[in-house]
Computed example of a mutant assay.
Amino acid sequence: MADTRVTSRPATGAPRPGRGTAPRLELPPPTGPRAVGVRTVHLVDDDREDPFRPGRPRELMAQLWYPARAGTGAVPGRYVSAAMSPLVVGAWEDWWAEERGCSGLPRGTAAGVAVHGAADAPPAPDARGCPLVLLSPGHAQYRAALTALGEDLASRGFLVAALDHPSDALGVEFPDGRIVPYREPDGLADGDTGDLATRYVPVRAADLRFARTRLTAPGFWWHALLDPSRAGVAGHSLGGAAAAEAMRLDPGLAAGADLDGTPYGEVLRTGLERPFLICQFTADDPEYPEEPRARERLWRGLRGPRHHLLVTGGGHESATDLDALAGPLGFRECTDPGDYADALGSLPEGRGVEITRACVGAFFERYLSGAEGTWCDTGAPPFPEVTAVG
């Protein structure tokens, strides 16, 4: 499902949270044994011109999570770095307000979500041979939207990098203060994916390929922790489509996962020979028949280990942090019921994040770390809401 279909605006006359006191917002703690550190890094691809900004190299911002020295992960950080400009933080909060229906929240609420990665914590001294997992968020979303998943993977021993895709993401700020605003895609109409398929997915796939190469290169600060031969990619919505296309382009990506994304691109023609997970949170919608057709076409082209999970009661945003934060944000109370169901379905608060962490974590443990006895081997995910349909 394309993110452009989820609009989640407040219902007329719906109650809104008061502006007096910000609710306490905190992501669920990671489930793995490791403490988690977090850093932000600026990546510049000098060999590629930015297609949205001619004459400039393609630049990315990435959020890095990694296993940290024991004891350092107890100091919570914040969702959005205080070092970011008010304009970018404001764009992030406006997205929550306008697109997620929480327009009554005090300024600073969304930016102040407590997280569990300790900023710039020293890496765990015994962390060696860690696999890398790249994360790509949904269209127009910020790299922080998959923080709960990123932190959890790091607590399991992975090095994780979530990317902002400039011009596709909300405002992206670079270290010199430049801000790249969001660019609305062209050519979207009923049944027409326009820029999403023909421009955004190829650019994102190239971003992911470059990030994998750069983050595994000798000289990058975490190289001593890394096994560069074991890298994977996962994405939500448009990021899931980009994950599959990036795997087609980059044989260095050994496993991939699509979290409720409609696949686009050449990968539908060529298929893949490496492990791939389709984690579908929304049931097929007869109004959008092209989505199950694309998913089935991808499925038929997966020639390596393949898994298709269907989460009963899920919504398009169930894999994202919104799933864990909707309750204290008052999202249900200030959102049209139909929009709420599209976004989060009928799962209990936090259940989508729990399912995502467990299923995606075990998938990468199986195919990047060689773990045995996971649900990938048994074919039975440990959740009553989750059915292995392939």
Rank of each mutant, 00 (worst) to 15 (best):
P86V: 01
A217R: 14
G330W: 05
D192T: 00
R351I: 03
L272A: 06
C334K: 02
L249K: 06
L329H: 07
D45N: 15
A380M: 09
T216H: 05
R24C: 00
D45W: 05
L134S: 07
L226W: 04
R5D: 02
L135V: 05
A241K: 07
G150C: 10
V233R: 06
E99R: 14
V267I: 07
V389P: 08
S8C: 14
P23N: 04
D45L: 07
G301V: 11
R5Q: 08
G261H: 07
R209G: 05
P15I: 01
A388P: 00
S237K: 04
A257N: 06
P337E: 15
A162T: 14
R209C: 12
Y340K: 11
R293E: 15
L196S: 06
A362R: 00
L27F: 08
D227T: 04
S8Q: 14
G265T: 06
G73R: 08
E26S: 14
P181S: 13
F363Q: 00
P185F: 10
R56P: 03
D321N: 10
G219N: 07
L225G: 00
E290M: 13
D321G: 04
L163Y: 02
G117E: 09
P275I: 02
G108E: 10
P125R: 13
G90E: 05
D46M: 08
P384K: 10
E354M: 06
S229T: 13
D377F: 00
A74P: 00
T109C: 08
H165C: 03
I355W: 01
A217I: 05
